[in-house]
Amino acid sequence: MNYSVAFLTILFKEIRRFTRIWPQTLLPPAITTALYFLIFGKLIGDRIGLVHGVSYMDYIVPGIILMSVISHSYSNVVSSFYSTKFQRHIEELLVAPVPNYVILAGYVCGGIARGVLVGVVVAGISMMFTHTTILHWDIAAAVFVLTATLFALAGFINAVFADSFDDISIIPNFVLTPLSYLGGVFYSVAMLPGIWQKIAQANPILYMINAFRYGMIGVSDVQIELAFAMTGGLIVFLTALSLLLLHKGIGIKN
């Protein structure tokens, strides 16, 4: 059987969902980003001067873009798949001959679509404040898409385990946001005192942000190969875990 129709049906449904509610999904990141650039870039950044030889404003652009990709690809899948469970229209998929990997691919690609779209909006806004050019398009694009994929998968797993609307905001608030802020969006790890440098290096988001920064402005605190290996490895692991959860029907079937 050809599952492309089923896959596209899920994907378009997901894209329609977040574009229909664009004031909740696309507008807030645009406003937040503009504020970041205004406050950190313009007001504070002018006093900081250069970091690794680039202006502070240019230094923080990649991190801010990637941070919005992370939070939006995650939150798209977690809220969409959780409400699919909650409203029980997951049953529409379960009664039909749709294999689990197609369900997963549909939702994850929906999350990637939102992450990428928001990332592009945020990048567009950043161009109003600074004129960074992208040095390595291929690396930047690869990190961009892989990061969106990874966090869309993580959002899916969160939704599978979630039992209430509170459960879908715990991870984003208490894990993702802190890790993103501590992932070197606003500073270089080289600025941290000794022990904190070691601790920061345990944060996977640090690798993605630095790899993306390398792609955009050619500056990184970490090895790019390591960042790709780590992101790729996590994607493989979370994909396997998601498929296992779907196969067992955890949180979905009695």
Partner: peptide
């Protein structure tokens, strides 16, 4: 099913169209 289980935010048309899509029926 005994209880309502479609997406309450979609139109009647898309509820039925989506289900057709899940069964692999071309548009």
């Amino acid at each position: 099913p005994q209880e309502v289980n479609f997406n309450q935010f979609e139109t009647s048309m898309s509820v039925v169209m989506n289900q057709a899509g899940y069964y692999g029926i071309p548009r």
